[in-house]
Nucleic acid binder design. Structure first.
Lengths: 256, 256
DNA sequence: CGAATAGTGTCTGTAAGACACTATTTT
DNA sequence: AAAATAGTGTCTTACAGACACTATTCG
């Protein structure tokens, strides 16, 4: 996008006298809903706030967008900071939240992002947080205020997380994003466990294999390397890597 | 979302000394991609800018978000102002654009919205525009700068419009949004012309009827009122109104 | 061997693609 | 009657659901 750099006739004179202070200023932040699988459970990264407002509450990681970066770059930066690694998973914009009362300090507009990654390590808390950890989403009560021991989320983060979960669940239907949750190489049983974790149940094993293997470019056969020997009993599985396809046509249907 | 109104322990003291000027200020705008059908063609509302920057260029309607409204309310306000009527169609958030160079005046983050409506009247240009009109999207060159007489779009609006078109096209597959484009009562031929206009081609007529009528709640039978008599030749069609369903399961597939 | 896990084969039902046919109006 | 538009019926094909069966490992 370079069009903003090019001057059009008469613009230079105009810009010289233009005063941007005529418009209401907003703070712009990014919030991240980062998902991974931990012990077979769909989990989201939350931080416990050290500062007011919502001191002690759990919140989605995030921060202010700087003047020299766009929202996506801010999201990538926060993702690297919070996970402590170069994030190799999937990142996409979710939507923007702009309600007046969402932050009691000032007017804040937040661009929420959705991130998915395979088996990420335990996060380290930043300087502004008591703690940072992966929470199984089943342990969070996102529906209402009547939480039974589940942590209370700061700001409108319960709403953001609900929207993010909806997005993840529906995207598994028509994209190959499930493969973003597993380390390579992976087995089809690994991949099916992703659907199990995200949807609550997965398609019949045979039908699942038929669907994945008939979707060209979803997975690529990998060598059954001796290093990948699984210590468990049973027939050793075939191994796969992620293919280049990003969509499934027709989609994988959710059971029931 | 009332959580921002409630004070938590220790917050009141904190808020008293909090200085929001510590964070970079942004201007926040909304941009609207408003679609309708005009003479059987999918068309989008554009305004010709009277002011710098991009004076004389065509742009999506939009404006600054005010301090006393959220982005959605700003979008609804602009929609009413630009179309000159109380907009009765569909409005949803598209995505947010935040590149550094997207506005040469200052740092502007824009939340783009998508609106769909039936046969809207000719728009009136606002005070900041030379003109406002419906452009058939086929007459716009959104791909690159090598336009053959097509109007040049201001800012990153070609990108926003491309994203909006993608959204509309895919949403016709798995939602009942096509019905937002037609006035009630409508015929199944009217509804099929929506798909024809948005996708470039529509499913076979018989198969289309089967799909629509077998999707419970997509359309509701209406009385064949004498007022709705069509002057053309041919068998008079059955009339329908929009049903309550919002999704189609399984989706309507695009031809080819 | 049995248990555990991985992988294959096959029958059936649903719904889409293709396309021929019938129905009702105006000129 | 012919043209134009609306609506129905039916054969075929693609693919998902259900579920039985085979394969290969470990203890």
């Amino acid at each position: 996008m370079t069009s903003g750099q090019v001057q059009r006739p008469g613009e230079q004179e105009f810009l010289g006298v233009y005063r941007s202070a005529d418009f209401p200023p907003f703070a712009v932040t990014v919030d991240l809903a980062v998902f991974t699988l931990r012990s077979g459970l769909l989990s989201v990264l939350l931080v416990q706030r050290r500062d007011h407002p919502y001191r002690g509450y759990w919140a989605l990681p995030g921060g202010f967008v700087r003047e020299d970066e766009n929202a996506e770059e801010a999201a990538e930066r926060e993702l690297t900071e919070e996970t402590g690694t170069i994030f190799g998973g999937h990142l996409e914009q979710l939507r923007t939240y702009s309600d007046l009362a969402r932050d009691p300090r000032m007017r804040v507009v937040s661009v929420a992002y959705l991130a998915l990654g395979p088996g990420l390590p335990d996060p380290r808390p930043g300087s502004d947080a008591f703690a940072a950890r992966w929470w199984p989403v089943a342990d969070l009560d996102l529906a209402d205020a009547a939480s039974h021991g589940a942590p209370a989320l700061a700001f409108d983060h319960a709403q953001i997380l609900t929207d993010a979960l909806d997005r993840v669940r529906s995207k598994l239907e028509y994209t190959t994003l499930a493969a973003s949750f597993v380390d390579e190489p992976f087995t089809l049983a690994d991949l099916r466990r992703v659907y199990e974790a995200v949807w609550g149940n997965a398609p019949d094993l045979g039908n699942f294999r038929r669907k994945v293997l008939s979707t060209e470019g979803f997975v690529i056969e990998a060598d059954r390397s001796p290093a990948a020997a699984v210590p468990a009993a049973g027939r050793p599985p075939l191994l796969y890597r992620r293919g280049r396809a990003t969509f499934m046509h027709p989609p994988m249907l959710r059971p029931q």
